[in-house]
Design a protein around this nucleic acid. Structure first.
Lengths: 228, 228
DNA sequence: CTCATCCTGCGATGTGCGTCACACTGTGGT
DNA sequence: ACCACAGTGTGACGCACATCGCAGGATGAG
């Protein structure tokens, strides 16, 4: 684990409460996992009590309906945490974790983390905050599903991805989200075709340019307006 | 606060980790609130750092869209907790809490609870579990919004309400949910009219009988099948 | 008891978006 | 260099559900 990894880890809710001393001790009990694009880390219904922090790359969390249709809960990048639900609430996983790009992760198991929480109760507080934020965000998304039309949800999703993965560039903001339109559709709860049409419409209006698994955002303000 | 209240409180995630000693100390710092039907405890965007446990009655948590349309996040009964998000993540409230029936609540403020968490770190663990469960449930509901049709969501909502508020009776299960069809509609993310038609259809099939702010569930198995 | 208000029931109409169908393009594998 | 297949682009069609409109019933305040 290199210096950059240590820094990335430090921004995760699990580590941010700790001093250098504690962080070092916690780093000692995490194990590193490497995934190539498309590889599955864990699947729905599996037992599991490991929590992960993304060091590098992107991971998607998906749920599969009985009839096979899929639903993308979120796409996670560096410093973001997942898999903790099965750790705090001992049940099988309710989502699968799949690498969207080649990725490296840091994982901690229940047995290693638990004693740590006893010694460093301040971690729990930070975890509670992290879960509270997630819950807020999820409630937000629920409301959007009910009140916002598909183009609006696509705009929202792009803005969110832009905030987290966007790189400033000559002509605007380059958002290399690494998602196919199919995955984007699963993320906003719509069909691939409808998402395609929404994107085409935005592009035609000059708000963005479509690229392979990426977009160039040209007029972020218009996009913001469309998302409300 | 009577014996029944103490028992109800004891089933809340906040208390379940504590021994009689600790529970007594925690009870000493909660304050009781009384609300009559329709009364608002707190509103969206307000500052707030109190957490509540329902002692008696029912509370609904709602969000209001900019255009005024409403969205019901959940209906909470005795032993259930709410308002904790603003406590763990210090931001304004993202939902309003309104009494569906006359209710009594126990409330704890940030300043009183925080030192308690330091002394009893085991509470945090239980709170983490409670939030993890809520997150799972919310993800579930999101998927339903995307994959399940309105009648299916109505069936699901009724089954959930039945599980939490149902009373066995002569002809089946009496579920006095105290919600108007409008509120039920906001809960499942549909229009009042569509929910009405779904209910009428269920009743016509003999699965349930419609009453004022309540239903008699006659054939719970059919209802379960329809919800999948 | 009486009126006003909230709630329920239900048909008519319109539309956003899912589904289907198919063509085009880019990319990676051999 | 080639083919196969995954991903993208776009039109035609139908349907589930929102919206609108209204009427009948329940509830509760005075």
């Amino acid at each position: 684990m290199n210096d950059r990894d240590v820094e990335v880890l430090g921004r995760a809710p699990l580590f941010e409460a700790l001093d250098e001393e504690g962080a070092k001790a916690l780093r000692a009990i995490v194990s590193e996992v490497h995934l190539s694009r498309g590889q599955t880390l864990f699947s729905e219904d599996q037992e599991g009590d490991r929590l992960y922090v993304v060091l590098d790359g992107k991971i998607k969390l998906t749920r599969t309906a009985p009839d096979g249709r899929e639903n993308l809960l979120s796409v996670l990048g560096p410093s973001e945490m997942f898999g903790e639900l099965s750790l705090f609430d001992p049940r099988p996983r309710t989502a699968s974790a799949i690498a969207v790009t080649e990725s490296r992760l840091a994982g901690v198991g229940h047995n290693d983390l638990w004693p740590f929480l006893k010694v460093h109760p301040e971690i729990s507080i930070h975890l509670l905050r992290a879960l509270a934020q997630r819950l807020r965000r999820t409630n937000e998304n629920m409301a959007d599903l009910v009140f916002t039309d598909v183009p609006g949800r696509v705009a929202k999703a792009l803005l969110d991805l832009a905030e987290r993965f966007g790189q400033p560039s000559e002509s605007g903001l380059h958002v290399h989200h690494d998602l196919t339109q199919e995955e984007l559709a699963q993320l906003v709860g719509a069909s691939r075709e409808t998402v395609n049409k929404a994107l085409a419409d935005f592009a035609q209006r000059g708000w963005l340019r479509i690229e392979a698994r990426a977009v160039q955002v040209l007029d972020i303000d218009r996009l913001r307006k469309r998302s409300r």
